[in-house]
Design a protein around this nucleic acid. Structure first.
Lengths: 388, 388
DNA sequence: CTGTTATGTTCTCACTGAGAACAAAAACTT
DNA sequence: AAGTTTTTGTTCTCAGTGAGAACATAACAG
């Protein structure tokens, strides 16, 4: 059985519901609106808000008058309230940001790194430099799958199941970690193009394709936290062998690797990225060979999306990274090949394919989301109230 | 916001938790065990049970003494309690059963049909013949996807988006419906080989492959209730065109159609099934051509499962229909090709591939599960208490 | 200036589950 | 056979919750 239910848990639950509503809201709302939203009385709302104010979780600020009636207050994050630190750890750079309840982020620091796990020491130092009493939780985004939540595997950096336990700060508060593609999808589901969609998918297209299935605003993790390698399904019939050890992966035909391979370059994570950008530019400027490469990329992308839509029936599919350019330059190609891959009876109502709106900040935003998820719980709120 | 929380809802929630525990339990348990299981006091448990007894939802029977201590009672479904009717509607037959809380099923009636939607009138008549005051909810399993929960599409029967609203009984209580492959998977997740698995998959292999992704004991439905057509992803590189309108579907290489095509028979749903069984028999008796066909089928199955495991990371995969035979006769082939399709770093811990244990009763069992799910809710229980 | 409207505040009330104390019924111990 | 131990059932009190009603307050409308 999941949660016990006592009349004290009732209050904790409603406190969390209120905090969650503030965190998830697209725009701030008033105390009276909160009462309506949660289906509780004005008196109860007042009691909840008072408790959260005292625990420095919420703050009331006078709302500008907006019609008749007694003026009320807006519910905003407390200025001295808890903060989540979010880290976006990429192949050669990292960024540290501070995120308050509701999602407002402030970049604190960033840097490059030498592609060895020593970078975690740098990040620990940066966190230490910015640490405050308000720091309540940390969320990490990394590239590469993280088996069971603590063994990081980044094949192109040669990191083979690096144990994270010793690399993150032992003195840190609750720390959660997940991979960038999944967190970018979560960010779209919570604060971007997929907001409000029940079932949706997100794909980040870089050299490789990573993605996630989003159900009810939550990213699916699988049994060992390594779900999401949609790029390693043989959806386009390639005969090549993939770096992952499998033959025919979808990623061999979609993304920067596929683009540069056509121009004789070896798939790689350094100058390959430059070349991929160059190919995009050339295609935009009418170079036919580059345009062909782009067409092939878009077609393979569409074909795979159609296949996945048959299986998982998403309402919408958002793309980030190179996917944004592909939508901008080759939407029709993607959609045509997607339709071709869709079972005939589904073609009347294909999934909407959209560019992500969170953009580059996806992994960071998603890391902040899982960080806040980790503490917006009944246990944490209850403890916070006791301490105050 | 999902559910409001008042102190009256508290009781309703605990009543449902108790009913749910009884329904889901592998073996009946005592009142004292229930208190421990739900994390509530013995006094509260007594109050909950008394209310549910009065509402004829639970019944207490003396438990045989099992050690020291004052004797207690087992909690069992009330003998006059509500019943769910479950219908398994197949391509040419149907079955009606009555299922009590906890899942015990009694077959009531069954029959053949003429493959037109007129069969629904037969089923309505059968339900009417067996209707009792105890009937509380109906669950239907059909083949074919059911778009938005009410438009049934069975291509091989020529049913093109048949509207179900007029076909099921207008005078019936709550009625829920879903497709057979998904419900077979749900049955495995709730009462079969996938019980207790967080993320798992189930595939029913017949002529086609249908399946479902199971997360936390729930079958995923997608945005339009038509998720699960895993058989219509191009996972094995077939060049053929599929009945579904797409080229290269996995189903073209796995299942009865793929078996019989090798022997020159047209894929079809009549004598094709006989031939498929015949081929299995021949393969078991050493016929090399039949054995080759079986090998190819198993290999294609394994290849696809590996690809899907990369994307969705299931802990276990269960199979029903022809899949059970394939596991029995060609487990090594399936597992070898699954491993080949798995990303190298996943091969140390491949998903376990198991035969379903609910067997033929899968769709019926799953239909009963969604039926009970529909009424094991706070609203329904509360109304039932008021009426009693 | 007065009426209307929306919200805040205060108070009572029904209900819930916790917890403690005690009762009951079985098995174990001597 | 009688007392002891163990487990569960029962009863009672109690703190806490949110609903609801009545009233207070502060803006706007005419």
């Amino acid at each position: 059985m999941s949660q016990t239910m006592t009349s004290a848990d009732l209050r904790a639950r409603n406190l969390v519901r209120l905090l969650r509503a503030v965190h998830d809201a697209a725009a701030p709302f008033t105390r009276a609106e909160a009462a309506r939203l949660l289906g509780i009385g004005r008196n109860t709302a007042a009691a909840l808000v008072a408790e959260l104010e005292q625990a420095r979780l919420l703050h009331e600020v006078p709302a500008e008058a907006g019609g008749r009636g007694r003026p009320t207050t807006m519910l905003v994050p407390h200025p001295e309230g808890p903060l989540a630190f979010a880290v976006d750890f990429r192949e050669d750079t990292w960024t540290l940001a501070s995120v308050e309840l509701g999602g407002a982020a402030t970049e604190l620091e960033g840097g490059e790194h030498d592609r060895t796990p020593r970078v975690f020491a740098e990040i620990r130092a940066a966190v230490a430099r910015h640490e405050t009493d308000r720091l309540a939780v940390l969320g990490f985004a990394t590239s590469g799958p993280i088996r069971d939540g603590h063994r990081l595997h980044i094949s192109h950096l040669g990191w083979d199941e690096v144990e994270l336990g010793g690399l993150i700060g032992a003195d840190w508060p609750t720390t959660v970690i997940d991979n960038d593609a999944r967190l970018a999808g979560l960010a779209e589901a919570r604060r971007g193009a997929l907001r409000g969609r029940g079932t949706a998918m997100h794909f980040h297209i870089d050299f490789d394709i990573g993605g996630t299935l989003l159900i009810g605003g939550d990213a699916q993790r699988g049994a060992h936290n390594i779900a999401g390698e949609f790029g390693h399904m043989p959806l386009t019939g390639s005969a090549l062998e993939c770096m992952c050890g499998v033959r025919g992966c979808w990623s061999l035909d979609v993304g920067a690797n596929a683009l540069v391979r056509r121009f004789g370059a070896r798939p790689g994570y350094g100058e390959g990225r430059e070349l991929a950008r160059e190919i995009l530019r050339r295609a935009e400027n009418g170079d036919t060979e580059a345009a062909d490469a782009l067409d092939a990329n878009a077609a393979a992308l569409g074909r795979g999306l159609g296949a996945l839509a048959n299986a998982l029936d998403p309402e919408a599919i958002s793309l980030s990274g190179l996917g944004v350019d592909l939508i901008r330059l080759r939407r029709e190609v993607i959609e045509a090949h997607c339709a071709e891959g869709l079972m005939a009876f589904r073609r009347t109502d294909p999934p909407r394919i959209v560019a992500g709106t969170v953009g580059e900040a996806g992994p960071l935003t998603g890391a902040a989301e899982i960080a806040w998820d980790a503490i917006l719980t009944e246990e944490w709120v209850r403890r916070r109230l006791q301490d105050a």
